[in-house]
C-alpha cells in the first residue's frame, strides 16, 4: 500500500488540490470548465512533454520558449502558402534546431543549460528578423479552413484536448514501447554504464533534444493557431511553468525517473494552482508569491525522496 502511494504522489497532490479548491468554491468542480481549462493548457503541455525527454536524460532545454516564439512567427508567415504542410515543416525546424543543441552538447561537451540557452538566443534573433519585430496575423481564411476545427468543441470537450491527447499517446509510445525509450531511460539512469554497455549515448541524447525541440515547435504551432497570429515574444512566460510542470510531476533533474505520464499530471497541477487563484480570489499582486509558496508545498508532497541520499 505504501509503495503504491509512493509512486503515485503526483496523482494524490493533484486530486488533493482539486478537492481543496472545490471545497472553497464549488464552481471549480464544474466538468465543463475543467475541460476548458485543460484545453487551454495544451500548448504548455506539449512543450512540457518535449522538456520531459531532455530532463529525463538529465539535461535541460531552455530553448523551448524561444523556439515556440519563433514558430508562431513562421506559422503566421507561411500558413497561407504551405497549408497543412506548415505542421510538419515547423516540427522539422524544431527537430533540427533541437538536434543542433544536442550536437553541441555531445560533440563539444557544452552543458545543455548553455547550449540550449544559446540556441534559444538564435531562435529569438531569427524570430525578430523574420517578423520585422512586430506582431503578425495569420491569413484567417486558411486558418479557419485548415484548423478551424481545433478551436471548436465536440460536445463539451474542446478539440485541442484531442490534439494534446494524440501527441501524449505518441510520446507515451516512444517512452514505453520503443527501443529509443529504453535507451533514454538507460542514459538517464546511468550514462557511463549505458555507454559501457555499447549504447550510442551521444545519438540517444541528440534524439532527446531533437524531440524536445520538435515538440516545442508543435506547441508554438498550436499556440499561434489559437491566437491567430505570432510575435517574437508572444510565448514568453511558458518556459518556467513548463519546467515546473515536468518537475512537479515527479521527473527530477537527475534523470532516469518519471516520464510523460508524470508531466501530464504535473501540467494539470500547475494549471489547477494557477486557475484556482481566480476561484479563491487571490489579488493579482499576490498571485506570483502564492504560486511560489504553493509550488514549494506541492514539491514537498510530490517527490519521493526516500531513495535520495544526496540532494543537489
Amino acid at each position: 500500500m505504501r509503495d503504491i502511494l509512493k509512486s503515485n504522489y503526483h496523482w494524490v497532490t493533484l486530486f488533493t488540490l482539486v478537492i481543496l479548491v472545490g471545497l472553497v468554491d464549488m464552481n471549480f468542480w464544474n466538468i465543463e470548465s475543467l475541460l476548458i481549462l485543460m484545453g487551454d493548457i495544451v500548448p504548455l503541455f506539449i512543450m512540457a512533454l518535449g522538456l520531459t525527454f531532455a530532463i529525463y536524460i538529465g539535461g535541460i532545454d531552455l530553448s523551448a520558449q524561444s523556439m515556440a516564439n519563433m514558430i508562431t512567427v513562421i506559422a503566421s508567415l507561411y500558413l497561407a502558402t504551405l497549408g497543412l504542410w506548415i505542421v510538419p515543416v515547423c516540427f522539422l525546424v524544431g527537430v533540427i534546431l533541437g538536434g543542433i543543441s544536442g550536437l553541441i552538447t555531445t560533440r563539444f561537451l557544452v552543458p545543455s543549460f548553455i547550449s540550449t540557452l544559446a540556441i534559444g538566443g538564435v531562435c529569438y534573433s531569427l524570430a525578430q528578423w523574420l517578423s520585422g519585430n512586430r506582431a503578425l496575423y495569420m491569413n484567417s481564411e486558411s486558418r479557419d479552413a485548415l484548423f478551424g476545427w481545433m478551436l471548436s468543441s465536440t460536445g463539451i470537450v474542446p478539440n485541442t484536448i484531442f490534439v494534446g491527447a494524440f501527441v501524449f499517446v505518441i510520446a507515451l509510445l516512444i517512452e514505453r514501447r520503443s527501443s529509443l525509450g529504453r535507451q533514454l531511460k538507460a542514459v538517464g539512469s546511468a550514462e557511463l554504464a549505458a555507454s559501457a554497455s555499447g549504447l550510442l549515448v551521444p545519438r540517444v541524447k541528440v534524439l532527446a533534444f531533437a524531440l524536445s525541440g520538435g515538440l516545442a515547435a508543435l506547441a508554438g504551432v498550436i499556440f499561434s493557431i489559437k491566437l491567430s497570429g505570432g510575435a517574437p515574444s508572444i510565448a514568453n512566460g511558458f518556459l518556467l511553468p513548463a519546467i515546473v510542470a515536468v518537475l512537479v510531476g515527479g521527473t527530477p533533474l537527475t534523470g532516469g525517473v518519471g516520464g510523460v505520464v508524470n508531466t501530464l499530471v504535473g501540467t494539470m497541477i500547475v494549471a489547477v494552482i494557477r486557475s484556482s487563484m481566480l476561484y479563491l480570489e487571490v489579488a493579482a499582486t499576490h498571485q506570483q508569491m502564492v504560486f511560489g509558496i504553493v509550488l514549494i508545498i506541492a514539491i514537498v508532497f510530490t517527490i519521493d525522496r526516500s531513495k535520495l541520499s544526496i540532494v543537489k
Binding site: L253, G292, I299, V300, V311
Partner: peptide, 10 residues
C-alpha cells in the same frame, strides 16, 4: 530535501 533547482526556482 528538495533539489535546489526546484526549491530555488520556487
Amino acid at each position: 530535501l528538495i533539489p535546489s533547482f526546484m526549491s530555488s526556482l520556487a
